[in-house]
Amino acid sequence: MIDRVLGELESALRADGAAAGRAMQAVWQQVGSADAAAATRALERIGSLFDGLPPGRGSRLAVLAGALVERGADPAPAVPAVVDGWLEAAEAATEFARRWRLAVRLAPPEPVDDPATFEAVVARLAGGEPADDGLRRLAAAWFMLGQWTMALTTFLQQAAVRTGLPRREEVEDAVEALQDVRYDLDWLVDLLRVLDDEQMLVLHRPSGRGWALTVGGIGDNFQLHTLLAATLLSMTDDRLLPGMPPSAAEVAAATDGPLRPDGGMQARFHLVDGEGHWIWNEGVPADIPVVDGARVVLLDPLGEARTWEAGRQFAQMVPTVRLVRVLDRDEAALRIVSVPTIATPQHP
């Protein structure tokens, strides 16, 4: 049955938009409840269907591909096509924004999914003249970029995609060019900054102890704080700090378990970087500076109680925090003494 609906999708994509939409829905009905292996087989076939599609069909096919990845499909077969499609749409959307500002002298319109709005925008950009295909293509890219972005952000929650992303520099440059005019790129910006297989030294100033870790796939410093506490606090392991680690449910919410938006995670430490500055939980691990080859985090005593909602920013992104070794006392002491003491700012 899955092979049949995929065959119908391939034919419909070359026919008309309405048929393509129905065929995509049929694929999802068959594969949406299937296992990861079936989703991967479907995505392998879908990954070869992007070439030559009109922008609207390509972006909708990308959304279907992202949905299959959320079902557990290996994204690899569709990564090049989704990246290429996103970049093509981003380039055209950037040109649309430039022309709009020149012609209309206003910020570009909200890219809402509404045919009447699209036609009104095309007419206004054309300035009363008939709109040619090139202008309509630019406007379509502006309106469809969000769908490509949705797919790309889903793909980037997989570590293998982040570490092997094709045309990464072009994607980063295109995001930078659009950030001032598009307000739906924040998640993409954050995912492009996610660290993977990153060395981190964690130091405890009161006890003079330290640990070397490898971290990856962490969306923000709230999550980092939770996972450091889970990794380095123990009531029984004398290699670690004595203390009560987060609960199993809190750790699950920060890794790959059910999200608990109403759960309150209590801060265990005051986090300071290797240059002596407060590490804001609202930031991301990439904000932590590299000092002598590693990102350094000091676990200082907690000055005031802080709580936040247990969870993770990206539901499909599975983090890793691996304890590599315990630093010897001399190495830890040298690292700790090298961190300057800077007055901590008040929390905003």
Results as ranks from 00 to 15, higher is better:
E119W: 00
S48V: 09
W148N: 10
E95Y: 04
F314A: 11
E331I: 06
F50K: 05
Q199C: 02
L64D: 11
R312K: 05
D273C: 09
M144D: 12
R295H: 06
A267H: 15
A252G: 08
A131V: 05
R99H: 06
G274R: 06
L68P: 00
A286G: 04
A253C: 00
E44S: 06
A92I: 11
R295I: 05
A123I: 01
V31A: 15
E282Y: 04
G66P: 04
H270L: 15
G210K: 08
F314R: 06
G21W: 00
T255Q: 00
A248T: 14
D273T: 11
P54F: 15
A254E: 07
F143I: 13
A34T: 03
T214Y: 04
G72A: 05
L178S: 08
T307M: 12
E275K: 07
V83T: 07
D262Q: 15
R99N: 00
T307L: 02
D3Y: 01
G274T: 14
A19N: 14
M144Q: 09
R260S: 11
V27M: 06
L188N: 03
R14V: 11
M265Q: 09
V5P: 01
L191R: 12
S338V: 09
P80S: 05
S338F: 03
A141I: 09
D196F: 02
L298K: 05
L156R: 04
M150P: 01
G7K: 03
E8K: 12
L203F: 09
P289A: 05
L241R: 00
D184P: 01
A93M: 07
I342Q: 12
L232M: 07
Q313F: 11
G303Q: 13
G66V: 08
T226M: 04
L232C: 01
R57H: 02
V272Y: 03
A286R: 10
L298R: 14
D190Q: 15
D132Y: 09
L232E: 06
G276W: 08
R57D: 15
A36T: 02
R306G: 13
M317T: 10
D74T: 11
L298F: 05
I2G: 10
L53D: 13
N221E: 14
L188K: 08
A81V: 02
R209M: 01
S234F: 01
G217R: 11
R101H: 04
V79Q: 08
F314E: 01
D292M: 08
L323D: 02
D287P: 08
Q223H: 13
W211P: 01
T163P: 02
V326D: 01
A65L: 14
D180Y: 05
A140T: 09
T94I: 03
P108R: 03
E110L: 12
P115L: 13
L178M: 12
D3M: 08
G219D: 11
R268K: 08
P289V: 00
D173N: 03
A343M: 15
R260N: 10
P111I: 07
Q223E: 15
V251R: 12
R14N: 13
G311R: 10
A62I: 04
V296D: 05
P348K: 10
I342K: 14
I46P: 01
L53S: 13
V82N: 05
R182M: 13
T255K: 04
A23D: 05
G52D: 11
V121N: 06
L203N: 00
